[in-house]
Write a protein that binds this DNA or RNA. Structure first.
Lengths: 189, 189
DNA sequence: CGTGAACGATGACAAAAGTCTATGTTTTAC
DNA sequence: GTAAAACATAGACTTTTGTCATCGTTCACG
């Protein structure tokens, strides 16, 4: 399973990383069942997670304690609460598994060492951050102006696998739509 | 006016940067009137702008050609379309001045040189990127679940100066609310 | 200055989204 | 395997948001 991570890195940084195995060894392998809490709002986020298998939900609670999902991240991607991870401040978001998962977690000291010993890995962090940012910008631009129906169409176009893979409730909270409304609108398509 | 930028940098990186003046000299000083287009969607974003004075609007058009504003950035902050700037791809967003502005612009080659000659400046990019990302995450978490009225309250709490400084039309487009609705809701507060 | 365009507020109405209840189905956990 | 819980859908109704037209006011620019 570590090969998923190995491939992810060599695809981006090339095969000529002589200390790659050493770096990979610093990752902690985590097997998690469905619905496990990976990070709780208020705790510092100690790890960056690479998802080798499964799917994570990044979410907060609104004033009525409903979940609103900022992001859904699937295998072969990185997931963390980066701002807490890099500052050490308490996390403002929660993370949980929505499927059985296999994760590889790297903590802050190892992450620092990795970036210092091989400057190429510095790129990894920049890539994670830029990808996360791009995702956010995309989401804001799409969502601030779209109606509920158009958000669903947006999801069908850009992340169609989510529609078949996840519960309606979760998708609705990702789209910022009430689940009953989501159910009605789906029927109209 | 360059001192605004000088202070911004020394506040973050300390006073002991011997090549600071050389770096500052690579910035281009731009004076812009109100309502000038700084970046057009489709063009590559060639600069990162430091706003010494004034205010910029980052926006896109929705399917009905209404503007939706992803961000409003005021003086003593950085503004760019970072993803285009760092990749060279066409920008997906527009930027314009909403007030008379004084900007300091740095292009990609100078930015690279700056980061290579003094690794401390590498931190600047990371800080810009992290701040931009933090801002986006904050905005998504706040906005996906909030009603129009609660978005206005959110703005009153976190960026109250915008309410007095900018037009209702602009604020409404930043909040993702129709301007007539914004006008009505304001009266209710 | 003066004037034409943009702006802000408001009322009437339409459309979209939210809420609540009920019901049947699927999943989970023991 | 079965009972309990969670899930998906649907109808009736309420609330919120959007749209359009109108009318003073303000502001930018010649």
């Amino acid at each position: 399973m570590i090969d998923v991570l190995r491939n992810h890195i060599t695809n981006r940084l090339g095969n000529d990383l002589d200390n790659l195995d050493k770096v990979l060894a610093t990752f902690k392998h985590i097997k998690a069942k469905r619905n496990e809490q990976i990070l709780r709002q208020g705790d510092p986020c100690k790890y960056v997670y690479f998802i080798a298998k499964g799917c994570l939900q990044v979410y907060v609670y609104d004033k009525d304690f409903n979940e609103t999902t900022r992001d859904i991240v699937i295998e072969d991607n990185w997931c963390s609460e980066l701002l807490s991870f890099s500052s050490g401040n308490p996390a403002t978001e929660n993370i949980r598994t929505v499927e059985p998962c296999e994760l590889f977690a790297i903590d802050r000291p190892s992450f620092q060492t990795m970036m210092e010993t091989s400057p190429q890995f510095d790129k990894v962090y920049k890539q994670i951050l830029e990808a996360s940012y791009a995702n956010s910008v995309y989401r804001i631009n799409a969502f601030v102006s779209l109606t509920a129906l158009d958000r669903i169409k947006w999801l069908m176009e850009y992340r169609p696998m989510l529609l078949t893979r996840l519960s309606s409730k979760l998708i609705a909270s990702y789209l910022g739509i009430n689940k009953d409304v989501f159910s009605r609108l789906k029927a109209k398509l």
